[in-house]
Design a binder for these strands. Structure first.
Lengths: 220, 220
DNA sequence: TGGTCCAACTAACGGTGTTAAGTTAGCATG
DNA sequence: CATGCTAACTTAACACCGTTAGTTGGACCA
């Protein structure tokens, strides 16, 4: 059966099905043949709509990133930063299995550039010098990606020991795992607040030599 | 030619060659056949020394992690944390291509547990309550991994715009890429210092309700 | 000297992403 | 209305992947 009366595939449909498989079976669980089967189609058919698996994954990732909120800088840099970071993390938390793919580097130039611009612009507008705005943006990204990677990415608790102080009564591992997510969420929030506190302190402090270098911003 | 007079392979040799390929051609550039060829041997021969590619990579990653310094907590939590974070990042920076593999989760339980224990113990000994020590450890790891992921992990500058403020004279991309590493290094250092500053401030502050929750530590 | 085991070999299996070539529905044009 | 072009699928096949099975022959021990 060649060309069907009504098209069987669409980019959106392919993306949705791919993400479903990734969510269910992990990043390695997605193969072009399996994806095609899920869509009731043969594998090469996909290549009519996406030139490559990489492109498809880029698109899936971009779709996820659409939910990141970079608009709150109108309420001040602190609010803007917190909103951005939290929504960023939340977006990744919804689809943890895609995080390892993000480690390969960003594909979609356009959208990510637009976001970066909004963030940078927001920080500069709030009084941070451009150079520091750059570093703040990068730092926050590090935190989100690192948290996503460290916590979601794959199955087991790594630092078992580390959690024991918090739940000393739990010796059974599955309960421990169950709470590990909460620990990660708390740790991320903790890191974010400490970082922002550090920033706030820097705002009210004259530039030190030997610090992270560069002038401190005027109070915004 | 079966069993040679002197063994052609050793775990250390395999690891070294694997890491060389990864450094040169990226994580995807490493295949068992290619690795075997580089060692002058057929692919299945490797399976006599390593049960699986995953195990091999785990071992390679562990070797890299050996260089991380978690001993400086004897000079105070600040010094310990900074030394740990910087040596961690430096270790990853030497072999950026392996970072995506780390996103799959830690393999070697043993060594990583020992490290986690040293860090947690160091923080607690310095006066941080266990729960906060956990979060500090996790946070720092986030920062390092996120920085490693965001910056090294493959090929092009993502947020071109973001760097322009710093090097406004550079319109050519390769020069820009060249300096991106410096920006990343600076951003990491910046993030680390802001975070530690935030921590220090917390040490001198009474516990707030509505903060990251949990009691603040006594002054150590 | 004979037996066992080690450390390599070749062949092959099932899977991967992707390309090539074939087939026909739908559409535009003479 | 017939013709030709392109779109959207098909099946076959390629080169590669990680890994397993089965074979071979040198090294070591009784």
């Amino acid at each position: 059966m060649p060309r069907p009366t009504t098209p069987l595939l669409s980019q959106a449909g392919i993306r949705a099905s791919a993400l479903e498989i990734i969510d269910r079976e992990g990043l390695d669980g997605l193969s072009m043949r399996k994806l095609a089967a899920a869509l009731g189609v043969s594998a090469p058919a996909l290549y009519f709509h996406y030139p490559t698996k990489e492109h498809l994954l880029d698109d899936v990732a971009s779709e996820i990133m659409e939910k990141v909120d970079v608009t709150a800088f109108t309420h001040g840099w602190r609010e803007g930063l917190l909103t951005w970071a939290r929504s960023y993390r939340a977006a990744l938390a919804e689809h943890p299995n895609i995080v390892p793919f993000l480690a390969r580097g960003p594909g979609q130039r356009d959208a990510s550039l637009r976001r970066a611009d909004a963030i940078h612009g927001g920080l500069v507008a709030a009084g941070w010098p451009p150079r520091e705005a750059t570093m703040i943006g990068a730092s926050t990204k590090y935190l989100v990606l690192g948290a996503a990677m460290g916590s979601f990415s794959r199955g087991f608790v790594d630092d078992v020991q580390v959690y024991l102080d918090r739940y000393p009564s739990l010796a059974d591992a599955h309960r421990l795992r169950e709470h590990a997510d909460a620990v990660d969420r708390d740790s991320f929030e903790f890191a974010l607040l400490m970082f922002v506190d550090g920033l706030a302190a820097r705002l009210g402090r004259p530039p030190e030599s030997g610090g992270a270098s560069g002038p401190a911003p005027r109070r915004g």
